[in-house]
Every structure is written in structure tokens, then in C-alpha cells.
């Protein structure tokens, strides 16, 4: 298979560039992955229907993907898509939605579409807030997060969207981030091939809003990379052991003071451990301490426990978001069941 340059995908699948997405927005990356997945599957572009709601993610297909697109009312993409898919089941129907659009106002349609197990692939872009409208709390915003509608910390708790949709009955459920482009592209192929309701949550960088939410004071052109690195640091892939032996030290107050304290302590005990500041989705800006092996890690953990500037020591995977494919099942598909209804009714 000849390797295709990005220009190939742009010319064949993308339109109306440049998009209005902010620099470093995950939406463009997801569009990139989607074009590759469609190309890899060799789908007939004339029979793809992309349906989207209202929000930044809605613009991924509408207008930027070159297929039939239906840009609907806020939260209702899946209901519109259901009507189109039922009436013309030859269509490959893909719904692009956001965490607010899909699990906030659209939550009811999300769980019912999953319950029906209708052959529709839903790609939910989770940027942890209502980005287009200014960065308000979303059903996925972390507890305590500061957004423009939770200036004193988010009092709510987020959904685990994958478990929610799996419980509702989806037969393919996966979660990736916009960093994991190879896994995400393959997952999109699997989702589209799945004859039933497929759901992919993509945790996505949103430099404009997340810069404020996470307090990243860097110059604007550094923020996308900093968020991307945080997504890598804060997630792990199901079934894969973490590379290396490390833990995190949560500073009691300033991260700088904690870093110095830990460095001097490590230096005094000359334990071959490296310490650096990292951003963690769950714990915030903390210290990551990497050790040569498991024994060193145990002794480092003990040592960190005694450093006054360190409030708490956390294990490598603790508080991280699990990525991967959570559900792969076979169950009767909704449109097939409707055809069975038609047969029993003696219809055409």
C-alpha cells in the first residue's frame, strides 16, 4: 500500500479550508483521522452521511468533510441521523458531536440510540467544556474545574461517557485522545464496520478554553503542545503496562518549591531518580519521579512521603483516564429489526 501524503487526503476528502478551528484544536486532528479511516475502508464517498449538532465539533464534517452533511439543532444529531439511516440504510451514517451537544442536551438521544443499537457511528469530541459559547461547564467537566460558569470550582461530577453508553447498549465503545491518532483512526474503521451502534469518545485539546481552565499561562503557540503532553501524561491504554517505573508527587503549595525540595532530597540520598514538572489532568501541575526499577520506586515513594513540600504521593496509573476499546459485541441491529418487522407485516 503506497503511503499517501496529507495532500492526498486534503484534496480528496476535505473542503473549505482553512477551517475556523482555533490553532491546535483537536477537531482538525479528528477530521484528519476520519479522512484516513474512510480512505482505508475504501468507502463510497457518495454514500457517506455525516450528521452533526451545534458546537465546534459539528463543523468537523459540516462543511469540512466532502460528503453529504446534515448540521442539525443542538443535541439532536442522533435523532436526525436515525431518521435518515432508517429510511436509507445504504448510507454509512456518522454523527459528530461534542461533550455538551452529545451528552448534555443530547444525552437522551445518545442513550436511546445506543439502546436501539442502530448502525450509526458516533464520534464524541470531549474537550471538557462548552467551548464554542465561551467555555462553560459541560457534563464532562472535572469536579473543581474553573470555567466561566464555575468560577469557584465545578460543583458537579463528570460522566464516564463510555460506561454510560456501554450500559445503554452500544455494541462498540472506545475512548482515545486526539494525540493517539493511529489508534483513533483504526478505531474509527472498526466503529464504521460494526453493524450496530458504535461510540468513540475522543478527549480533545481546546487551547482557547483549556488554557483558562488549566491555567496554562504560556504564549498561545505553546499551549496546544502543553495540552497534548498533558493528555499523554494523564491517560493509559487498557491492557498496556505503563512504560517505566514512576510516581507523582502532589505539591502542598507551589510546584517550584516542591521540585527543589525533592531534588535536594533525592540528591542527598543519591537515588538514581529523575524528577520533573508535568501537567496531570486529574492532579494538576505536579512532579513526576522516574526511577530505574521497582525497588528504587518503593524507596523513592517513602522518601517523598516525608518531604514537607509534598502533600501526597500518587501511583503511576492512579487518577488516569483509561483509553482503548471497551465494548465489542454482536446484537440485533435496529434497521435489520425494522426489516424483520416489515417481513412479519407482509410488507414489500
Amino acid at each position: 500500500m503506497p503511503v499517501k501524503p496529507l495532500s492526498y487526503y486534503r484534496e480528496r476528502y476535505i473542503r473549505h479550508q482553512p477551517s475556523p478551528f482555533c490553532p491546535g484544536c483537536g477537531n482538525g486532528i479528528i477530521l484528519n483521522c476520519f479522512a484516513r479511516a474512510v480512505d482505508e475502508l475504501g468507502l463510497d464517498q457518495d454514500r457517506i452521511l455525516c450528521v452533526s449538532g451545534i458546537g465546534c465539533s459539528a463543523w468537523i464534517p459540516s462543511p469540512h468533510f466532502n460528503s453529504d452533511t446534515l448540521h442539525t439543532t443542538h443535541g439532536r444529531a442522533l435523532a436526525f441521523a436515525t431518521g435518515a439511516k432508517v429510511f436509507n440504510s445504504d448510507l454509512t451514517v456518522v454523527v459528530f458531536t461534542g461533550d455538551g451537544d452529545g451528552a448534555g442536551i443530547g444525552g437522551n438521544h445518545l442513550i436511546h440510540a445506543a439502546r436501539r443499537n442502530i448502525d450509526i457511528t458516533t464520534i464524541l469530541v470531549n474537550n471538557l467544556s462548552y467551548a464554542m459559547t465561551g467555555g462553560q461547564i459541560a457534563p464532562t467537566t472535572l469536579h473543581g474545574s474553573r470555567t466561566i460558569t464555575s468560577p469557584y470550582g465545578n460543583p458537579e461530577n463528570p460522566f464516564d461517557l463510555c460506561r454510560l453508553v456501554a450500559a445503554a447498549g452500544a455494541t462498540y465503545v472506545a475512548r482515545w485522545t486526539a494525540y493517539h491518532v493511529v489508534e483513533l483512526t483504526r478505531s474509527m474503521e472498526e466503529a464504521i464496520k460494526n453493524r450496530g451502534f458504535s461510540f468513540i469518545e475522543v478527549i480533545s485539546p481546546c487551547p482557547t478554553r483549556q488554557r483558562r481552565i488549566f491555567g496554562f499561562r504560556n504564549p498561545i503557540y505553546e499551549v496546544p503542545s502543553r495540552i497534548m503532553e498533558m493528555l499523554v501524561e494523564s491517560t493509559y491504554i487498557r491492557g498496556r503496562e505503563p512504560k517505566g517505573h514512576y510516581c507523582y508527587a502532589i505539591p502542598r503549595a507551589g510546584v517550584k518549591e516542591a521540585l527543589e525540595a525533592v531534588e535536594t532530597e533525592l540528591g542527598r540520598r543519591d537515588l538514581g531518580a529523575g524528577v520533573r514538572q508535568v501537567d496531570h489532568l486529574r492532579w494538576g501541575t505536579v512532579l513526576r519521579v522516574d526511577c530505574a526499577g521497582p525497588e528504587e520506586l518503593d524507596s523513592v515513594k517513602e522518601l517523598l512521603g516525608e518531604v514537607p513540600e509534598v502533600e501526597r504521593v500518587v501511583g503511576a496509573l492512579e487518577g488516569k483516564v483509561e483509553l482503548g476499546v471497551f465494548v465489542r459485541e454482536r446484537r440485533p441491529e435496529f434497521v435489520e429489526s425494522l426489516r424483520e418487522v416489515m417481513r412479519r407485516a407482509g410488507g414489500v
Binding site: 450528521v51 446534515l70 435523532a79 431518521g83 432508517v86 436509507n88 448510507l91
Partner: peptide, 20 residues
């Protein structure tokens, strides 16, 4: 189709209309 609410019902009607 019996949908989950009237909002979805109206949405499905429009989706189907555009499918012909």
C-alpha cells in the same frame, strides 16, 4: 419509529425527508 420524545420524532422526520 416510536422515538424517545417529540423532539426526536420531529428530528427523525426531517432526517428521513432528506433521505427521500
Amino acid at each position: 419509529l416510536q422515538m424517545e420524545d417529540e423532539i426526536a420524532s420531529m428530528a427523525a422526520v426531517i432526517g428521513a425527508s432528506w433521505a427521500g
